[in-house]
Simulated scan of single mutants.
Amino acid sequence: MTTKRLLIAAGGGGDAITAAMVHAALHGATAPALVLTYAWERLVVDPVPGPRRPADFTGTEPAAPGLALVTPGTRPVPPAGSLLPPLAAALRPRLGLLDPYGGAVGLARQIAAAARWCGAERIDLVDVGGDIVAHGDEPTLRSPLGDALAVAACAATGMPTSVYVAGPGLDNEVPLSALVPRLGEPAFALTAEHTEGVLGVFDWHPSEASAMLVAAARGVRGVCGTRDAPAPLVLDEASRGVHRLGLRRTLELSPLARALEGSTTLDAAEEASREVCGFSEIERERGRAAESERAGTPRTPHATRTAPPSAATLRSRFAAWERDTLAGGIEYVTTRRIAEELELTPTEGRLLFDDLRAGLSVPRAAPLWKLTADRGQEPGREGAQG
């Protein structure tokens, strides 16, 4: 059996994309690797609150006892949704499912099974943004549970583990001013070369943090507005940095990870999150889903439209939105922000974005859209730099 590197995407789909880039930087993009990730996605993708488990999918590959691999042919069982199958088709590393319903203890068993299958002797645990080192009391913290469970599970395996935090602050969960003293100096920085295997996913994947990380690695610098951010973020040289921490240090920084050690159910993990952080993100998802159901609001805006507007109409709508956004001092935006603020259906999104790409004057582009005061000259994305 060919030895594979074992990586864990600490928080789900966006971290799986970042894990592929970190793997490319550490070991080379073509080195065999397995990325373990949660099937835990936004309600607009998966309308069922909380994470999915292997039984919620058909077409997974049972690689070993306790290890289910996601393939391009894997499908979520309705009403669940998932973007992991197209990620499995797009990313070079294989993807394996993490099932958190057995708490940190259950996750540790899955990680150990994956390590045996890979022939791996160590783990690389990857997080984009930095909520993996959250103290739990940050007012902007939204989703610490998956990351903290992964930390506690890696500790339970007893395997040597390095924790990599890429793009500090890009997830808008822990303020950059608080992250800097916790993370120290970066171990290395991602470059355009490390992004080559993931560029295409941002045409359809909503991860904003990993999109900004890719843009920063490709040389984009400036003020970026995302859907999730309470305020615009500034992409600078530090935004492409990757920080390496030991597992013990990460446990010291994360009270929630310490509280999760020995947990055997997801319910117990939720309760620990309430005690440490004052909330459960799964409970928040349940509340949003119930509110949407009561209001009769479709989770995909205007999904029932049958006749899409013309490209010219969409371009006009975008141009008006663009002028307003530029007036707020924002230079770059994510695909997700455009799609959600203009309430685009998938068909409308394809029409608009294809139209904007047609105006590009460079062959390669980073996954952010550069706003311009004159949409008639060079519509489209910021070209790759550096």
Rank of each mutant, 00 (worst) to 15 (best):
G11M: 07
G11Q: 12
G14N: 02
G14T: 02
I17T: 06
M21N: 08
V22Y: 04
V35D: 04
T37P: 12
A39S: 15
L43F: 08
P49Y: 13
R53W: 02
P54I: 05
P54L: 04
P54N: 07
E61R: 15
P62A: 03
A63P: 11
P65R: 11
A68Q: 14
T71Y: 11
P72M: 05
P76H: 01
A80G: 15
L84H: 08
P86F: 08
A88Q: 08
A89Q: 11
L91E: 12
L95K: 06
L95W: 04
G96Y: 00
D99H: 03
Y101M: 08
V105E: 15
Q110V: 13
I123Y: 00
D124H: 14
D127V: 03
D137A: 14
T140L: 15
L141E: 14
L149W: 03
A153V: 02
A156I: 06
T161F: 01
S162V: 07
Y164V: 04
G167V: 11
N172F: 10
L179V: 15
L179F: 10
V180L: 07
L183T: 11
A189C: 14
E196N: 05
F202C: 04
D203W: 04
S207P: 07
E208W: 06
A209I: 13
S210E: 05
A211M: 00
G222T: 01
C224H: 01
D228I: 07
E237A: 14
G241F: 02
H243E: 09
H243T: 06
R248K: 08
L251S: 11
E252D: 15
S254P: 13
S263H: 03
E270D: 14
A272P: 12
S273M: 15
F279E: 12
E281H: 05
E283S: 12
R288H: 11
E291R: 10
T297Q: 08
H302N: 13
T304W: 10
P308Q: 06
F318W: 08
R323L: 04
D324N: 10
T325I: 01
V333R: 00
V333D: 00
T335E: 15
T335P: 05
R337K: 06
E341I: 05
E343C: 07
T345H: 01
P346Q: 09
G349D: 09
A358R: 15
P363D: 10
W369H: 12
K370G: 00
T372F: 06
R375F: 06
E378Y: 13
R381D: 04
E382H: 03
A384D: 03
Q385K: 13
